[in-house]
Amino acid sequence: MTTLTLQDVHITLAGAPIVTGVDLTAASGRFVGIIGPNGSGKSTLLRAVYRHLPLTRGSITVDGEDLWRLTPRRAAQLVAALPQETRSDFDVTTWEMAAMGRTPHKRPFASDTAEDTKIVSDALAHAGVAHLAHRRYSTLSGGEKQRVLLARALAQQAPVLVLDEPTNHLDVRHQFELLDLVTSTGVTVVAALHDLNLAAAYCDHLYVLAEGRVVTDGPPPDVLTPRLVRDVFGIDAHVTSTPGTDTPHLIFRPGR
């Protein structure tokens, strides 16, 4: 059982408050989505969870362990991330990029074990990029890179997975394949999503951010209402249900 808990999280950048007083809980094995307009603080909040941005105040814990009080190695054993953009300053292969996920579980400069090799192979296969193992990462398309980075996160075998706009650069088919794969892992997932219909289809619980604060949270049918969409995103939407389910489906209408 692995639960991620954010309590009273504040993040200030260049003297400006970006995230203010966020409380969030992602219970074990649940898929928690963070939605909100551009500039609402979604990515900033997630960067603090995977320790790329420090907190100004508050705490982030995994089963009671304060991530910001742990060694980087221990924190990486608990939280894996698929960020929006990942630069590679080295001419590495797809295999080498995915194998970086094993770093938190190895001693410095240690060679890959047979177990490491199997874990990386399985991760590449699950992400649908095993056939790219010997390609240079820099030569891949945006969508291929995204799936390789997911393989790296899977190889890390952390109980919490953080995804920042994971369907960027993916066509419709691969958007669904990636999120199907993520939900099948059984890990605790926190994801920032810009596609509200994908959020409705895959998330167990949604948190809505606006101007760095949580406006509301709850199951998708309770959160994704026409009024919420209009007030937060500034667009009118008709909300219906996906046939045979209670999953909300939003049809947007331009203008107000």
Results as ranks from 00 to 15, higher is better:
residue 2 T to P: 01
residue 5 T to S: 13
residue 5 T to C: 08
residue 6 L to W: 03
residue 9 V to E: 04
residue 18 I to F: 02
residue 18 I to W: 06
residue 20 T to R: 15
residue 24 L to W: 10
residue 29 G to D: 07
residue 31 F to K: 08
residue 32 V to W: 03
residue 39 G to D: 12
residue 39 G to T: 09
residue 42 K to W: 11
residue 43 S to F: 02
residue 44 T to D: 04
residue 45 L to K: 11
residue 46 L to Y: 11
residue 46 L to S: 12
residue 47 R to D: 01
residue 48 A to K: 06
residue 48 A to Y: 03
residue 49 V to L: 06
residue 50 Y to A: 00
residue 52 H to G: 13
residue 57 R to M: 08
residue 58 G to L: 03
residue 59 S to E: 14
residue 62 V to M: 11
residue 62 V to T: 08
residue 63 D to Y: 03
residue 65 E to A: 15
residue 66 D to W: 00
residue 68 W to P: 02
residue 71 T to E: 13
residue 74 R to S: 07
residue 75 A to I: 05
residue 76 A to D: 03
residue 78 L to E: 09
residue 80 A to G: 07
residue 82 L to I: 15
residue 82 L to N: 08
residue 84 Q to C: 02
residue 86 T to H: 13
residue 89 D to V: 12
residue 91 D to Y: 10
residue 91 D to L: 13
residue 92 V to A: 14
residue 93 T to W: 03
residue 95 W to V: 07
residue 98 A to L: 00
residue 100 M to Y: 09
residue 102 R to P: 06
residue 104 P to F: 04
residue 107 R to W: 08
residue 108 P to R: 13
residue 108 P to N: 11
residue 111 S to M: 14
residue 112 D to H: 14
residue 112 D to L: 08
residue 114 A to L: 15
residue 115 E to F: 03
residue 118 K to P: 00
residue 120 V to M: 01
residue 121 S to D: 15
residue 122 D to R: 15
residue 123 A to V: 02
residue 123 A to M: 03
residue 125 A to K: 14
residue 125 A to M: 12
residue 130 A to F: 03
residue 130 A to N: 04
residue 133 A to F: 05
residue 134 H to C: 01
residue 136 R to T: 12
residue 143 G to N: 07
residue 149 L to D: 01
residue 153 A to G: 11
residue 157 Q to I: 02
residue 157 Q to N: 13
residue 158 A to G: 10
residue 162 V to N: 12
residue 166 P to Y: 09
residue 167 T to E: 10
residue 169 H to L: 01
residue 169 H to M: 06
residue 178 L to C: 10
residue 178 L to Y: 04
residue 180 D to G: 02
residue 180 D to C: 06
residue 182 V to M: 05
residue 187 V to C: 09
residue 188 T to A: 03
residue 189 V to I: 12
residue 195 D to W: 08
residue 197 N to W: 04
residue 201 A to S: 13
residue 202 Y to M: 00
residue 203 C to W: 02
residue 205 H to F: 14
residue 206 L to N: 05
residue 207 Y to V: 00
residue 207 Y to I: 05
residue 211 E to S: 15
residue 212 G to D: 11
residue 213 R to A: 14
residue 215 V to D: 05
residue 217 D to Y: 08
residue 218 G to N: 04
residue 219 P to W: 05
residue 219 P to C: 05
residue 221 P to V: 11
residue 221 P to C: 07
residue 222 D to A: 15
residue 222 D to G: 14
residue 222 D to C: 00
residue 223 V to A: 08
residue 226 P to K: 06
residue 227 R to D: 15
residue 232 V to D: 03
residue 233 F to I: 04
residue 235 I to C: 03
residue 235 I to D: 07
residue 235 I to N: 08
residue 236 D to G: 09
residue 238 H to D: 14
residue 238 H to V: 15
residue 240 T to W: 09
residue 243 P to G: 11
residue 250 L to Q: 02
residue 250 L to M: 10
residue 252 F to V: 10
residue 255 G to Q: 04
